[in-house]
Every structure is written in structure tokens, then in C-alpha cells.
Simulated scan of single mutants.
Amino acid sequence: MGGIDVANGVAGAVIGMLFAVLFQQPLQDAWFRLRGRSGRALRTLRRRDESSPAWRTFSLGPLQTSALIVEGDGETPIPPETVFVHVLDEEVRLPEDMAPWRDEVAADSERVRAEGRTPVWNGPRYAVESFGISRTALDETPEVHLRLRPTDYYTFLAAQQLDRRLPDGATPRSRYLDPGEPLRAPAFLQCSFAVNVAVVTADDMLVVSRRSDRVRMAPGVWNSSVNEGLSRHIDSSGRSAPDLHAVCRRGMREELSLEPHEYTVDLLAFVLDVERRHWSAHYYARLKELKSTDLQERMSRGVADRWEHQTIDYVPFRPAPVVRYMMREDRVHRWAPLAPALFHLALVHAYSRTLVERVEAQILRRL
């Protein structure tokens, strides 16, 4: 019996070794696959149970921005006659614990002037009191109601210090802003409204500008073709409210030396930079006859605001070249927050959302 037991033990050991060699790895692989599928299923169930915010900022793969498209999809322009701008009389005032910050900006500007350097110009501006959207009764065309208050550039610079500590340890961002309600903010934190324009030449080249290193806000980043802020001094005649299309035309003239008869223009969207509280009207402009070489020659003969740009690129205005350009390693993290959404909307306006999103998905898969 002892010999039989030994023989059985040896046979069992050999069979066990063969089983381990033949089946251990496949069993382990099957177990890992089962565990992976179970984990993915559980994560999917959790996502279904979680709430998702209705408002999301514009993103395109690794290109993440703080631009929130509030109104407009690019395909259908917003008619200028449905945009109503109201200017309130009372000027914006900073809270008592933020008012000294404006004094610091003014004092610093005077010190720079005394040293013979270029001070910050305290231009008269507008702050956004509120932004409202409704629809017309018959065709549901969007109606935009923009309410503004007077302010100035020093107040804007003081209010841009959103993460600076107040005496009680809070910051303006933590005290006055709710990430869950991005459209609600006090007017003194929204002292910026601008127009941003995507300009396309007659030979289908998109104009992309790089901001000068000399500008105070966002120096050196890549930006829209034209960026122009509302000015109380220039854009309001007497007590009348500013006209956004007129501001767009002023920006085209001052930054690219273009006159209104040389292009067509469409208002595509209203967009908010939720990180810095900058509002923008996004426009698409198409040059009628001037090609990219013509525009370069025109600008060589003088531009009113040449100092605002240090570089201008011309990109073929088709979905694939523009998206690849935005995703370039030396561009993807160097954009002004509102520019990528503008170029996306301009492509949608020219080529349709279906085509543009298909091209974007193809390019993202290859990254």
C-alpha cells in the first residue's frame, strides 16, 4: 500500500504541475478580464447615478478652456436687431475691503509715470450688470438683453485679483462666485466686455494673432484675429448705449486696417470666461476681396493698434488644418481662454457642426 500511495502522490504532483503549466495563465487572464469588466460596469453605474452640470466650458481633448458658450451654436447667426444693450446710470463700486486695491493700482501707475515709463491708462469701461436671454414668440429667435454699468480700467485691474486674500481670509472668488451658477456674479467682478472676431481672408486663410508682451492682461498668448473691449468714451455717443456691431467694426479698423465695405460680419455667440469673468461677443468676418498677402501689405502701411500684436499667423481655413493648428504642442496650452471656442464656432458656421465635429473626433483619436 505504501508503494501505491507514493505512486499516486507522484502521479498527482505531475498532473498538478501539468495543470498549472497548461491552465494557470489562461485562468489568471480570464480572472483579470472579468475583474476589469466588473470594475468598468460599476464605474458606469456610478456615473449614471451622479448628476452632471448643465454648463460646461469649451474643451477639445487636451485643449481645456474656461470659455462658457452662453448663447449661440455657430450655425445660426444672432441677428443684431435682437440684441438689446441697456446702460444703467450708477457707476460700479468696489466693496470697502477691495477699494484699497484700486488705490494701489492708481499709485503704481503714478510711480511708473514718474519714472518716465509708460503708465496704465485708466480708460472708461463698462461692467456687466446682467445678461439675459429670451426667445421671440413666432420663430424662437434669441433675444439678448445686456445690462451695463459705468466703470474704469483701474477698477477692472483691482477686481481681477480674484484669488487675493481679504482681511477675513476669504477671496473675492470664494466670497462672491458660485461655480454651480456661473452666470451669477456682482457687476464689480465683471468689468470686461469685448468683441472677438475670427477673420477669414478671400483666399480662405484664418488670421490668428499673438498678443504682445507689452499688454497688461494675458501677454504673449495666441488669440482671436481681433479683440476689442467696449469703451465708454469711444463706443457711446452721448448717453446712448454701445452698438456691438459698431465695436466689431472699430476693432477691424484699428487692429487690421479694414473698412466695413471690405467684409461681411456675423454675430455667432456670447461667451463668458468663467475663470476671469470676461464677457465676449464672438463674431465671424469674411473678407470680400482681400487675400492674405493683400492684408499683410495693407498692415505694412500702418495699423492704429499695432502694439497689441507681436505675431500674426495665417492658417488654411478648413476644419482639419485649423484643429491641428489649435492642438499643436506649442499652441495647445498657450491660447487666450476665449479664442479656441471662437475658431470652433467659425468652422461650424462655415462647414456645419456635423462635419467639424467629425474632423475633430478623427484628429483627437490620432493624438
Rank of each mutant, 00 (worst) to 15 (best):
V323I: 13
H333I: 14
P219M: 02
L290E: 12
R358M: 15
M252E: 02
E297R: 14
H309W: 04
G9W: 10
D103L: 05
E50A: 08
T354C: 14
M98Q: 03
A198F: 08
N223A: 13
I78Y: 01
V120I: 05
G3W: 14
V87N: 00
A99C: 09
D152V: 00
L272D: 01
R365D: 10
V271P: 02
S192R: 03
T57W: 00
F19C: 11
L45A: 11
A127S: 09
L22S: 11
E308M: 13
G238W: 05
V265C: 15
V83F: 06
A246L: 10
L230W: 04
P179V: 14
E115Y: 08
Q190K: 01
S225R: 03
R306L: 14
A127N: 04
Y176C: 05
E360G: 00
D305R: 14
M299F: 08
R214P: 08
V83D: 00
L88V: 05
A159P: 01
A170R: 12
G220E: 08
A218P: 05
S237M: 03
S224V: 03
S109C: 03
R216F: 10
L27Y: 13
V274H: 00
R111H: 08
R210L: 08
T136Y: 15
T118H: 12
V199R: 06
A114M: 09
D305G: 07
S130G: 10
A7V: 14
H344S: 12
S352V: 03
G123Y: 02
T118L: 07
G116E: 10
K291Y: 08
G72M: 05
L345C: 09
A285I: 04
L157K: 05
E289Y: 15
L138K: 12
D305L: 10
D313M: 11
L295G: 01
P179M: 12
R331V: 06
D203V: 07
A187Q: 02
T44D: 09
L189H: 04
R164G: 02
E259T: 12
Y126E: 01
G229W: 01
D330N: 11
M326V: 03
F156G: 00
S257R: 10
A41Q: 14
C191K: 00
Q64K: 10
P124A: 08
R33H: 12
L367K: 13
T151W: 04
S212F: 05
D204C: 07
L287G: 04
P260C: 07
R286Y: 07
Q190F: 06
R102F: 05
S209N: 08
Y126W: 14
A114C: 11
L244S: 02
D266F: 00
E96L: 12
P319S: 12
D89T: 13
L183I: 12
Q310F: 05
E228R: 15
D305I: 05
H261D: 15
H278A: 04
R301W: 04
K291A: 08
R40L: 14
R249P: 00
F19Y: 10
T171M: 10
A99N: 03
H261Y: 15
D243P: 00
G180S: 07
R135W: 12
E329R: 15
V323L: 14
T76V: 08
E90H: 06
Y314E: 02
Y126D: 04
N8G: 09
A67F: 03
R232M: 01
A341K: 00
L166W: 02
H145Q: 13
S66K: 07
L183P: 03
V207P: 01
R93S: 15
Y314K: 05
R175V: 06
S237G: 15
A202F: 02
L347S: 00
P321A: 13
N227I: 07
